[in-house]
Structure formats: C-alpha cells, structure tokens
Design a protein around this nucleic acid. Sequence first.
DNA 1: AAGTGGTCTAGACCACTTT
DNA 2: AAGTGGTCTAGACCACTTC
Lengths: 271, 271
Amino acid sequence: MFCGEITHMSSVPSHLINQGAPTSGAGASVSVGSPTFSPLYQQIKALITQSLQSGEWKPGELIPSEVELAARFKVSQGTVRKAIDELSAENLVVRRQGKGTFVATHDEERAHFRFLRLMPDVGDAHHPDNKVIEVKRLRAAADVARLLDIKSGDSVIFIKRVQSFDGVPTILEELWLPGHIFKGLTAERLIEYKGPMYGLFESEFGTHMIRAQEKLRAVSADDVVAELLVVAPHSPLLSVERVSFTYGDRPVEVRRGLYVTDRHHYRNDVS
Amino acid sequence: MFCGEITHMSSVPSHLINQGAPTSGAGASVSVGSPTFSPLYQQIKALITQSLQSGEWKPGELIPSEVELAARFKVSQGTVRKAIDELSAENLVVRRQGKGTFVATHDEERAHFRFLRLMPDVGDAHHPDNKVIEVKRLRAAADVARLLDIKSGDSVIFIKRVQSFDGVPTILEELWLPGHIFKGLTAERLIEYKGPMYGLFESEFGTHMIRAQEKLRAVSADDVVAELLVVAPHSPLLSVERVSFTYGDRPVEVRRGLYVTDRHHYRNDVS
DNA sequence: AAGTGGTCTAGACCACTTT
DNA sequence: AAGTGGTCTAGACCACTTC
C-alpha cells in the first residue's frame, strides 16, 4: 500500500510526496521522478502508526490534536482528519468529542468483547475466574515458530489455563508467546493481574494487540481435556485457534482454546 | 439513529433539517422547533438507503453520480460523499473509480466469501455441489417466528440441503424463510439456479441480505445427521445458527448449518 | 473531451469539554 | 473563553473510464 516515500518522522517530517502549492488547489501531482505513490492521508496515517508503534504515545494517552498534527506535517486539517478516521475505524485510536483522540487500550469495557466472543446463552453477566495451570519457557516447535514468524527452537513462553464463568469451567486455553518480547512473564504476575490478559500485555510488555485471525472447528474432548473441563470424554468442544497481531501486522501470540458450548455460544456478526 | 425528519423522498426531497445559508458557512443550527436532530449526511444516507430498499436502484445497477445526488438533495458533493462512504463501508454499495457507484450484489466473487466462512485447510478451490433434500411449506414454530419477526403459525418455506466440496459432503443445512416474501420458491428453481443462493434471493425475490448474526457451537452428530453427512455417529460437528437481515434490519432468513470440520475450518477475522 | 470517483485545501460554524 | 473533534461548503485538481 505504501513503500517508504518517507524516511524520518520526528519533529519536522517535511518532505512528503505530493505537496502541491499550499494555497492553490492541492491534490497529488509533481511525481518527482518515479517512486510508487500513495495519497497524502495514507502517508500521514503511516506516520501516526509509526508513532504508535514506537511508543511515542502509549495506550490510553492523548495524541496531539488534529490542528497540531496538521501543522507538524504541513498539511490541512482535513487530510489529518481522514488519516485519523481510518485509524479510528481500525480501532487503533478512539475519538472523544471535545476532549481529543486517545490511543486505544484493552483496559476498557468496549474492548473486552472484541476478543472474547463467547457469550452466555441467557443473561449477559460474565464473572470470569482464571486458573493458571502452567507457565513455562520452551523451544518453539516448527508450527508455532512459523505462525509467530520466529525461528524453530527460539524461546517461547507457554501458558495453560482454565477459565470459568460463574464457577463453571468453560475454556481451556494454551498460549505461545515470543520469549524475546514477553521476557519476565511469570505465573505470579499472570495470576495477580486483574482484568483482561491483553491489558497486562500492553501495560507491562508494550505490546498492543490490534487484530487476530481465528480458525474454528468442532473437536472431541480427550481424557485429559475432559477432566480439566469437567465434561464427559468425547464431548464435542469448540476449538479456536488464534494468531494475534500487533502494530505493523507482526504476529505476537498463538493461542488454542477449547470451549464448552453447552450454555455458551461463540457469537459472530457477518457484515 | 434517525427519526423521520424527512417525509418524502422522490424528485425534490427538499426540506431536510439544518439547511444553513447555502453560501456562508454551513453546519447545523436553526433547530426549527424541537425534533431530534441528526447530521445532514446521515439524513442523505437514510434517503439513499430508502431508495435501495424500495428497489429504485436494483442490485448491480448504477446509482446517480455524486454531483447528481448533491443537486437532487441540494447539499454539497462532500456531504453526499460522506453518506456514500458509510454505505460503501457497510457493503451496501460498491464504488468504481471512473465508472460510478453500484448497488452491491451477491453475484460477485467478493461477496461469496463474506457469507460462507468455511475454508479448506489446504488449497483454496471450492467446488461446491448442492443436493436439495427437501423443500416444503409449513407453519412457523414459535422460536423461528420470533427470530423472523412474524407470527407463530405464519407460512414459512423450509429447505433442507447437503453441500459437498470436491465430492465430500460437508454442510447439512436447514433454512426457514418467510412465506410471504419467498412465495413461489420451489425445489426446481433452487436446483437449477447456478451460483450462491443469496444471488437467487436478490434477483428473483428482491431480497438482498446485508448482514447476519451467527451463533456457533460444537455439537454431536445424531444418527440421521451422521448418515446424511457420511460421518460416524457422535462425531463432533460445528453448529452455525444464522439470522440474516435485509435493508432496514428486517430479519428474512433463519438457517442452521452443521459443518464437518475435519478438512475445513470456519475462518473469522477479529478486528 | 467529458464524466466519474478520489484527494486536498481553506474556511466557517457546531457540539462538547475543560479552564 | 479556549480548545477539541464533528459537520458542511466551495472549489481545485487528479486518476480512471468511456466516448
């Protein structure tokens, strides 16, 4: 979509491509010599994304106002606005009229349900209770390494846990995280942290999840799984394999969940 | 979102709320007396949606250009543009640069995969083959009636079919459709029609699906199902319950599918 | 050449929040 | 009153398609 027309970004990231005469019309033209071209607002969007990625503005923080960004990038407010419009649509930032634009965070009500699609059939109160079964460091197997875009044998952190709702064991989950990013993640830290795990990831490890790909299947519970989830062996379970991505579409989490769907369902909106 | 500030829509749908002096600034003000207010572009969007719903422009057809709509509604092109932007984001229309804006249709490659999320684990060639098992009219049971927003006992059309990929039976589906909308739908018509069923629905019955809600579960195959899908009894199957909506968020289809997920998976993108 | 959607600007005013 | 995002306008020019 965009291929490096811009080299630096701090302070005065002046020479964007296509800067028409500031007063006359506008638009893109010039086309200095050859390089692939992209609209100004896309370049602005990429610059802002870089600032998010580099941690210049952290989750929950206020980013500069539209007029300020317009001045910094030497473009009109409308162009900055269109860039932020898209970032907002992608849930990277949240706008609040009268207050400003904030970096999206997982420590919010609204973000919880985006990544936890399992809903109770009746009622709507989630009373989650996490039981961490295992946390250890190990060497990445070939399949996990491929998904995480690391080398086979690289250090990964493995987590196994059971999630209960209203006291009923419902989700058995295994996670694989790149060791170089989540170095220092321990069972204690995981247990004592209240709130969604992605909140911990972003506040303690600077890794904010922005999207995920999931593959769903129906599978049969083996004896070990059946015991952990307190269901009969061979019970049908919903298998959810997830790969999560952070800024720049870098994969940073592989997860496999087994869901008991007797009193819950996985909700999806096709639109 | 919007509550009837506008009464008529054809030809000259003049009196929108908030028509500032055409030359000076703009914006919303005036606020004639009291009624709930919504931005101009939302009102334009609602008007365009009404035209889509009424069939003034049919799926696949070209809608009037932005400048033409701007003239018709007596607003600026930018305002019409913002309205169409949202309709485009909601997949109600499709823009094509240089050509115009078209009403979205299900007779396109891109629309297929939006409502069929089952993907082969390897490869990507779908060679679907539908076998219609049963088509009949019956009286709506209470649960189906509630979902379709009709009365219990109203006429519904029931369809049962098995879908195979590369010769392997993979999906067993049951559908319930409101009889008053799909009157005249027969097994023959269903069998002879090539392409996605939603294409048939929109071209023959004027009903275009715009979104759907799905509930997914893992279930166990009973004997009847096992025979139809050629799997062992008690095999785990992915159950997908869907309610589909047309313009105006009116429910017009209830569907229950049982998916064999040995060599396929249900793909979902969380973003 | 003419028409369509796509980008960009500049300026006005609105609604909302904080000082 | 000042600052923020949200709406609206008017006009320019661009990229793409068709005639």
